[in-house]
Amino acid sequence: MADYYEVLGISKDASEDDIKRAYRKMSRKYHPDIAGAEFEEKFKEVNSAYEVLSDSQKRQMYDQGVDPNNPGASGFAGASGFDGFSDVFGQFFGGGFGGGASQGPIPRTQPGRDALTRMTIDLKTAVFGGTVQTTINTYGLCQECGGTGAEKDTKPVTCPDCHGQGFVQKVVRTILGQMMTTAPCERCEGHGTIIEHPCPSCFGKGRVRSKRTVGVAVPAGIADDSRLRLASQGEVGEGGGAAGDLYVDIRISKDHDFSREGDDLHCWIKVPMSWAVLGHDLTIDTFDGPQSISIPAGCQPDDTITLKGLGVTKMRTQERGELIAHVAVEIPTKLKDSEEKLIISFSKSHDSDATHTAQASKPAPQNRKGFFNRLKDALS
């Protein structure tokens, strides 16, 4: 008997919440759409384990040594006392010592699995949020039969072998002699009914694999590598069963004009040296449209200009972060004769006593106002 606790990576005293968390983690890890088709069987094991351990009655049976997913393979391991012995004995006689309840037919309708997809959005969508369309390839309800699996105008019929019970009794030889045991009906595979005329589109499964477009509501301020959950947008189960959830992994593409740090946006603007010296008003593009900013006189390379409320939306408060413009001063590489004379004149008046470039672990304070006022006068 499979160790379902080990499959989910939990202890035998795990709570319902522990089981749910473990299932979500393991199902995402081994989902064939992510891990690859070779993990299909492992993914089925995870689902089987969750199906048993998430149901209190099935979990009790399992803890007593009976696997509800495979009752014919159960044994005495884990059974305790009269209850465990009764459960195992019931596998031979079709019920407990008290002539208890018999096995019922296996429903054709099964819940669908969760699906996982990836989607890339631009930075502006991450700032403001919005609905983005994505296409997924997964199982959906068969429109021709409506999920019944039967051809139009036909219905499943009662199995003549098990008479709708889904299980049949067989006589088996054991060390104790001949005994009666209960097993799934081979003709109807335990369903109790037979689809004599399967739907030609889904071949009796009630679902077909197809592509469909899903609108994903992206919240403002979402971070890169986030995961969104869309309830009931995953795979439709066999027999038209309820759809699982769809998980969407979000990636944010790089933007040409802005970079993001937390809730703030950053950009770098290159300005001529004269603008940095004398000051200048200009317009820059933002996600909120053109914005006017002022380069102050005496602006230094890597100085910043902050525009409040133009950054990324904060998910909790819906307020906006800041847009921080970094100033890059462009030093001319070629000068006209008249321009060169002005710079030389400024150098003689300001740098005549200079010996070498100062060296320090961090910038030394300087009289920026006096320096740039003199350079301003030289260029005017």
Rank of each mutant, 00 (worst) to 15 (best):
V216D: 02
G221V: 02
T109E: 15
S292E: 15
K12I: 01
K12P: 01
Q366A: 11
Q64G: 02
C267T: 14
I284W: 09
S54F: 03
R59I: 02
G95Y: 13
Y247F: 14
M61A: 15
Q60F: 06
G240K: 00
P156G: 09
F43A: 09
G239Q: 03
K254L: 10
Y247R: 04
A37C: 07
C188G: 04
R229K: 12
D13M: 11
Q110I: 07
Q178C: 03
Q169I: 01
G370Q: 12
F346I: 13
R24H: 07
S380T: 07
D288G: 09
T135Q: 11
D67N: 12
V218Q: 00
R21C: 06
G215F: 06
G100S: 15
Q318F: 04
I34P: 05
F92Y: 14
G147T: 09
L228C: 08
R209D: 06
G177T: 07
F167Q: 01
H256Q: 15
F203T: 08
I195E: 03
K20R: 09
L335M: 11
R21N: 10
K152P: 00
T109G: 08
S347C: 14
A297W: 00
N367W: 06
F82S: 06
G75A: 13
A276H: 03
G237A: 07
M61K: 11
N70A: 12
I175P: 01
G112Q: 00
G147R: 00
K58G: 03
K362N: 08
I269R: 10
K42I: 11
Q165C: 08
I252M: 09
G100C: 14
C188P: 01
T120Y: 02
I19R: 03
Y62W: 07
Q178T: 06
V52I: 09
V218A: 00
G237Y: 02
S349G: 13
T304A: 07
S56F: 09
F93P: 00
I343G: 00
S54K: 05
H280E: 15
I19H: 04
Q57E: 14
E189W: 01
D281I: 05
D87P: 03
G240S: 05
T117G: 09
D67R: 08
G75F: 06
S232M: 13
I106H: 09
I222V: 14
A297S: 14
K205A: 08
P272W: 02
K314C: 04
S54N: 05
E330D: 14
V46S: 08
K124G: 04
S201G: 02
D285K: 13
D3I: 06
A79I: 08
T117F: 06
M180S: 10
E189T: 10
G321R: 01
S347G: 05
T134K: 12
I106N: 08
T313V: 04
L230F: 01
K376H: 13
P219C: 03
E322D: 15
A276S: 13
M61V: 05
K44T: 11
P332W: 07
Y139H: 12
H350L: 06
L307Q: 01
A378M: 12
T135I: 11
D245N: 11
Q169H: 05
D337A: 15
Y4T: 04
D353T: 12
G262E: 06
H356M: 10
G99D: 12
I136N: 04
L282E: 13
R173L: 15
T357M: 08
E38T: 10
V208Q: 03
K20P: 00
A183N: 02
E319W: 00
D3P: 02
G75Q: 13
V172G: 11
P71M: 10
V127G: 04
V329K: 04
